[in-house]
Every structure is written in C-alpha cells, then in structure tokens.
Design a protein around this nucleic acid. Sequence first.
DNA 1: CCTACAATTTAACATATGTAAAAAGAATCC
DNA 2: GGATTCTTTTTACATATGTTAAATTGTAGG
Lengths: 188, 188
Amino acid sequence: MNSIKELFINKYGLSTENFDLFYSNITEVSRSKGEEIISKGEIHHSVYFIKKGAVRSYYINADGKEITYWFGFEGDVIASLGNFVESKPSLETIELLEDVVLWKIDRSKLLELYNTNIELANFGRQLAEIGLLEMEQQILLNQVTDAKTRYLSLIEKHPQILNRVKLGQIASYLGITQVTLSRIRAQK
Amino acid sequence: MNSIKELFINKYGLSTENFDLFYSNITEVSRSKGEEIISKGEIHHSVYFIKKGAVRSYYINADGKEITYWFGFEGDVIASLGNFVESKPSLETIELLEDVVLWKIDRSKLLELYNTNIELANFGRQLAEIGLLEMEQQILLNQVTDAKTRYLSLIEKHPQILNRVKLGQIASYLGITQVTLSRIRAQK
DNA sequence: CCTACAATTTAACATATGTAAAAAGAATCC
DNA sequence: GGATTCTTTTTACATATGTTAAATTGTAGG
C-alpha cells in the first residue's frame, strides 16, 4: 500500500492499531511545484509528512539572498521548528521543488495524540531523536569536510538530486557560491 | 534547591511527582577536568545532564585534528546520539573542560521510563525537539553568517566561554583556523 | 527549427583564509 | 622568582574562494 506506513511501523515500532489512530487524523493533500508550504513570518498550524516529491527549506540572509539549508524527500517531516516548538513566527520558507503529495496533520491534534497515547508519544520522541542524529551528522559533515567532499556525499546520498534541484540551491546548501561549485564540478 | 529541577519542571511541564520518579533513577556523579565522559569507538549505556561545569564534544578528522563541534553547559544533555538512537559506537569524544557535576541515568532505564510513563515520554520528546531547534539554528547560523559574526554571537550567548574554553577549540568550532580567529579578534 | 529565456560555466581580478614558523604573552612548577 | 611549557598573536607567503561580467549551454514555447 504505502511506503510511509511501512516506514512508520517498522522504523518507529508503531502498532497497526496506533498507526490507524494516527492516520485517521491525516489529510492527504497535493500541491504543485513552486508553491510555498510554509512561509517566512507566519504562524503555521500544521505538520506535514512527504509522501511523494521534493522540497527545500531556505532562509533569506542580510543581503536578501536565499540560503537553502535543507532538502526534504519522501518520508521526511516538514514543520517550522520555531513554530512547532516555541510558537514563534517561521524564520524559514519551505518551497516545493516538484509536485508533491503530503500527509497533513493539525499541530494541536498531533499534540493531543502525543499527550493521550504513550505509543504515539514515543513515536514523536523517536521522530525528533532521529532528526537530531541527522542534524548532528550534518553539522559534523559541514565542520569536518570541505565543500568538494560534501558535494560528493550529497549526490551519493541523493543520486537523483542533480535532476531535481538547481545547482545554485545546492551551492548555497554547501555554503559556497555557484561559481565555486562549478569549479568543483569541473575538477574531476 | 536545584536549578535543573526547576528547569525540568518549568520548561518541560513535568509534574513534581514524575520529576521525583525520574530523579529516583538518577545518580549524581562528579568528574574532573580533562576526563572523557564519552569516548570515540565505544558503546555507552548512560545519558547525562550537566548540573555544573562545561564540556565539549569533538571529532577527529582525516588529518588527525580534533574538531570541536559542540559546547555543553549547565542544563544541557550529554549523550552519544549515534549510541542512543542507533546503538552504534560513538563517533565523538566528550571531554570535560572543567570539573563537573553530572546527573547520570541508564539508557535502558530511561527508555523504560519513556515506555511506561506518558508524561516522561513527552518530556523526552520535548528534550529532543528543543535540541532539534537549537541544532537547526546552529546549521542556519553556520550557513548564513561569516565566522566573525558567529564568533560574536557565540560570546554573546556564552559570555563566560572565553574564560572556560581555549581559543583553538573555539576556532575549530567556528570552522576556521586559530590564526584566522586571532585576526578576527584583532580587528575591532 | 528558431527564438527567447533560464541555467551553468568560464574568465579576470580582488580579497580572505590557510600554512608554517617565529615572536610574544600566560600559566605552572620547582 | 626563574625556567619551562602551553597558549595566543603576528608575519610572510601560497592557495582558494568570492565578485562581477561575459560566454556557453540547456530548455520551453511558438
């Protein structure tokens, strides 16, 4: 049926029963390439799971340039963390790189589930902990390795990324200019 | 009594009753400056909370250099995430920068509490979510701002850090050499 | 197939950062 | 308090990256 369902059940140890409870609060929505699912400066009341498609999260720096700092693909969670954790307006914008299918759930409904169902509370905990581990690895990677290595490891992790994401966005994700990325690509 | 206790109760909404349950599984331990609390390549079975003192987490890169990528102070959690989340040997070493007092709890005991007490499960969830938010902000900061701005924001966030941490470690945390950090410090 | 526009690469130059080594400044120990 | 060791700054030079602009390549629409 659904690869996210399997993911949730196998990776986070959800029982079928509690997956069904979770899923009964989900609305499946389709959105088109180019739309913004979360916008800077706003408060959002939903959390999303990517069923199909690719997204990016970007921040606008002091010079007005868009800095991409996250790519999301199938199975990933989309939320404005500042929104979700501290109820503050979003600093980031999340833009759809392709047509996507999302699972949408109300933030308040999700919190209600967390507070009433211990298995779902631990599902949410593991979701956050796995996110932590991934972010830590990204911080480490950014600090330990140079842009060329990070570029190679990015395309190794997401072989399709070159077809799905523009090089300028990849360059800002790597913390370099597009010119430097071109030089790296020309090397080997 | 204890500032961490207040932190746990106020920030994470723990009831006194469940804080006591949590605390009854804590062992308070003192360790000396220079010791390693978590060592690269090993499996660790404990999670720690810093009651007093400062620590750093570092990784050894391909050239054998220590790259500091996290500083921990009072109230922070110490765990090898790879250990905790995926039961893999630790990639990082966590070293004590000062004499510290820690709250120590067994990983298996903590998981047992999470799986039997819904309030503690949500405490753990929030612990991870707040960590996520902090890591996201660090990733953003690293990507959006230059080393000078990051240095200034680091000493603004932790005014005591210059007295507690060596400049070479701060430089590696900022992703620059100590020479460049000296140049930055000489500027203004 | 041609045109117009968007994305990517290349070039030339200025600037910032790294490297290695020396100098200066602090801290520690007897 | 003097010598030793560790930490930080400074210097000189090589290299890598940023900036701006032009050239090239790729893509979509008629």
